[in-house]
Protein backbone atom coordinates (compact mmCIF):
# COMPACT_ATOMS: atom_id res chain seq x y z
CA UNK A 1 0.00 0.00 0.00
CA UNK A 2 1.52 3.30 -0.97
CA UNK A 3 1.23 6.20 1.37
CA UNK A 4 0.23 9.18 -0.70
CA UNK A 5 1.66 12.48 0.48
CA UNK A 6 -0.57 14.05 3.12
CA UNK A 7 -2.96 16.53 1.61
CA UNK A 8 -2.37 20.16 2.51
CA UNK A 9 -4.24 21.22 5.67
CA UNK A 10 -7.96 21.74 5.03
CA UNK A 11 -9.13 25.25 4.61
CA UNK A 12 -12.18 25.62 6.78
CA UNK A 13 -15.26 27.44 5.65
CA UNK A 14 -14.80 29.80 8.59
CA UNK A 15 -11.79 30.35 10.86
CA UNK A 16 -12.20 28.01 13.86
CA UNK A 17 -13.69 29.83 16.85
CA UNK A 18 -15.61 32.38 14.79
CA UNK A 19 -18.85 33.43 16.48
CA UNK A 20 -21.51 31.39 14.68
CA UNK A 21 -24.58 33.14 13.34
CA UNK A 22 -26.68 30.46 11.62
CA UNK A 23 -28.68 32.83 9.45
CA UNK A 24 -25.51 34.43 8.02
CA UNK A 25 -23.24 31.39 7.96
CA UNK A 26 -25.75 29.02 6.45
CA UNK A 27 -26.26 31.45 3.58
CA UNK A 28 -22.56 31.22 2.86
CA UNK A 29 -22.23 27.49 3.52
CA UNK A 30 -25.12 26.47 1.32
CA UNK A 31 -23.98 28.50 -1.67
CA UNK A 32 -21.19 26.17 -2.81
CA UNK A 33 -20.49 22.49 -3.18
CA UNK A 34 -22.99 19.75 -2.54
CA UNK A 35 -25.33 21.94 -0.46
CA UNK A 36 -25.38 24.52 -3.22
CA UNK A 37 -26.08 21.89 -5.86
CA UNK A 38 -28.97 20.58 -3.76
CA UNK A 39 -30.33 24.11 -3.36
CA UNK A 40 -30.29 24.06 0.45
CA UNK A 41 -31.28 27.39 1.99
CA UNK A 42 -31.62 28.81 5.48
CA UNK A 43 -35.11 28.60 6.93
CA UNK A 44 -35.02 29.35 10.69
CA UNK A 45 -33.06 28.78 13.88
CA UNK A 46 -33.26 28.86 17.68
CA UNK A 47 -30.79 28.39 20.54
CA UNK A 48 -29.86 24.83 19.68
CA UNK A 49 -31.60 24.14 16.39
CA UNK A 50 -31.39 25.11 12.73
CA UNK A 51 -33.85 24.58 9.90
CA UNK A 52 -32.76 24.38 6.27
CA UNK A 53 -35.01 23.85 3.27
CA UNK A 54 -34.58 21.55 0.30
CA UNK A 55 -36.72 22.51 -2.70
CA UNK A 56 -38.10 19.58 -4.71
CA UNK A 57 -36.78 19.11 -8.22
CA UNK A 58 -36.94 16.34 -10.79
CA UNK A 59 -33.17 15.73 -10.66
CA UNK A 60 -33.35 14.64 -7.03
CA UNK A 61 -35.86 11.85 -7.62
CA UNK A 62 -34.66 8.48 -6.40
CA UNK A 63 -37.23 5.80 -6.74
CA UNK A 64 -39.06 4.27 -9.66
CA UNK A 65 -40.00 7.47 -11.43
CA UNK A 66 -42.71 8.15 -8.86
CA UNK A 67 -41.43 11.66 -8.21
CA UNK A 68 -40.23 10.61 -4.77
CA UNK A 69 -37.01 12.24 -3.58
CA UNK A 70 -34.00 9.95 -3.15
CA UNK A 71 -32.90 9.55 0.43
CA UNK A 72 -29.45 10.93 -0.36
CA UNK A 73 -30.67 14.53 -0.52
CA UNK A 74 -32.58 14.05 2.75
CA UNK A 75 -29.42 12.72 4.44
CA UNK A 76 -27.42 15.70 3.12
CA UNK A 77 -30.11 18.13 4.29
CA UNK A 78 -30.10 16.60 7.78
CA UNK A 79 -26.31 16.33 7.92
CA UNK A 80 -26.03 20.06 7.21
CA UNK A 81 -28.91 21.17 9.46
CA UNK A 82 -27.71 19.09 12.43
CA UNK A 83 -24.10 20.17 11.87
CA UNK A 84 -25.13 23.81 12.03
CA UNK A 85 -27.25 23.16 15.13
CA UNK A 86 -24.05 22.08 16.93
CA UNK A 87 -22.29 25.38 16.13
CA UNK A 88 -25.45 27.27 17.01
CA UNK A 89 -25.57 25.63 20.44
CA UNK A 90 -21.84 26.02 20.91
CA UNK A 91 -22.01 29.66 19.81
CA UNK A 92 -18.95 29.34 17.61
CA UNK A 93 -17.69 27.54 14.56
CA UNK A 94 -15.74 24.42 15.61
CA UNK A 95 -14.48 22.14 12.84
CA UNK A 96 -16.01 18.70 13.24
CA UNK A 97 -16.77 15.51 11.35
CA UNK A 98 -19.93 13.42 11.21
CA UNK A 99 -19.28 10.12 13.01
CA UNK A 100 -22.59 8.48 12.30
CA UNK A 101 -26.08 9.25 11.15
CA UNK A 102 -29.19 7.11 11.26
CA UNK A 103 -32.26 8.05 9.28
CA UNK A 104 -35.68 6.44 9.73
CA UNK A 105 -38.01 7.06 6.84
CA UNK A 106 -41.62 7.50 8.02
CA UNK A 107 -43.00 8.02 4.54
CA UNK A 108 -42.00 9.37 1.14
CA UNK A 109 -41.87 13.15 0.74
CA UNK A 110 -44.69 14.37 -1.50
CA UNK A 111 -43.53 15.08 -5.05
CA UNK A 112 -43.24 18.82 -5.57
CA UNK A 113 -43.07 19.72 -1.89
CA UNK A 114 -40.13 21.54 -0.33
CA UNK A 115 -38.64 19.50 2.50
CA UNK A 116 -37.70 21.29 5.72
CA UNK A 117 -34.91 19.74 7.78
CA UNK A 118 -34.80 20.65 11.45
CA UNK A 119 -31.59 19.69 13.19
CA UNK A 120 -31.17 19.93 16.96
CA UNK A 121 -28.08 19.52 19.12
CA UNK A 122 -29.37 18.01 22.36
CA UNK A 123 -26.04 17.43 24.09
CA UNK A 124 -22.59 18.84 23.70
CA UNK A 125 -19.51 17.41 25.44
CA UNK A 126 -15.93 18.62 24.91
CA UNK A 127 -15.43 16.47 21.83
CA UNK A 128 -18.73 14.81 20.92
CA UNK A 129 -22.03 16.42 19.96
CA UNK A 130 -25.27 14.47 19.97
CA UNK A 131 -27.85 15.48 17.41
CA UNK A 132 -31.33 14.56 16.34
CA UNK A 133 -33.82 15.98 13.91
CA UNK A 134 -36.80 15.59 11.66
CA UNK A 135 -37.51 16.27 8.02
CA UNK A 136 -41.04 17.26 7.03
CA UNK A 137 -42.71 18.53 3.90
CA UNK A 138 -45.19 21.00 5.33
CA UNK A 139 -46.50 19.54 8.59
CA UNK A 140 -43.91 19.08 11.35
CA UNK A 141 -46.37 16.73 13.10
CA UNK A 142 -46.22 14.36 10.14
CA UNK A 143 -42.49 13.98 9.46
CA UNK A 144 -40.94 12.36 6.43
CA UNK A 145 -37.96 11.19 8.46
CA UNK A 146 -36.39 11.11 11.91
CA UNK A 147 -32.64 11.39 12.31
CA UNK A 148 -30.16 10.75 15.11
CA UNK A 149 -26.37 10.88 15.10
CA UNK A 150 -23.09 12.19 16.46
CA UNK A 151 -20.30 14.55 15.42
CA UNK A 152 -16.75 14.77 16.73
CA UNK A 153 -14.74 17.99 17.10
CA UNK A 154 -11.59 17.53 15.02
CA UNK A 155 -9.50 20.65 15.65
CA UNK A 156 -10.04 21.49 19.33
CA UNK A 157 -12.96 21.16 21.76
CA UNK A 158 -16.51 22.43 21.33
CA UNK A 159 -16.30 24.26 24.67
Amino acid sequence: MSNPPSPSPPTHVLPPGTRFDPSLASRMMTRHGHGGWLGLTYHAHGEDWVELSLPWREELVGIDGAGVLASGPIISLMDNATSMSVWTRSGKFVPHATLDLRVDYMRAARPGNTVIGRGECYKLTRTISFIRGIAHDGDPADPVAHVIGTFMATHGPYR
Binding site: P10, H12, S71, G72, P73, D79
Partner: peptide, 22 residues
Protein backbone atom coordinates in the same frame (compact mmCIF):
# COMPACT_ATOMS: atom_id res chain seq x y z
CA UNK B 1 -16.73 17.58 -8.48
CA UNK B 2 -18.17 20.61 -6.71
CA UNK B 3 -21.52 18.79 -6.81
CA UNK B 4 -20.30 16.27 -4.23
CA UNK B 5 -18.02 18.56 -2.24
CA UNK B 6 -18.70 19.33 1.41
CA UNK B 7 -16.18 21.40 3.35
CA UNK B 8 -13.39 22.66 1.10
CA UNK B 9 -11.31 19.79 -0.27
CA UNK B 10 -13.57 17.03 1.00
CA UNK B 11 -16.41 14.84 -0.17
CA UNK B 12 -19.79 15.65 1.45
CA UNK B 13 -21.04 12.97 3.86
CA UNK B 14 -24.49 13.18 2.30
CA UNK B 15 -23.08 12.56 -1.17
CA UNK B 16 -21.15 9.57 0.22
CA UNK B 17 -24.38 8.29 1.76
CA UNK B 18 -26.28 8.86 -1.46
CA UNK B 19 -23.66 6.88 -3.40
CA UNK B 20 -23.82 3.98 -0.92
CA UNK B 21 -27.61 4.06 -1.00
CA UNK B 22 -27.55 3.81 -4.82
Amino acid sequence: STRVQGRPGFLHGGAMSGLMEM
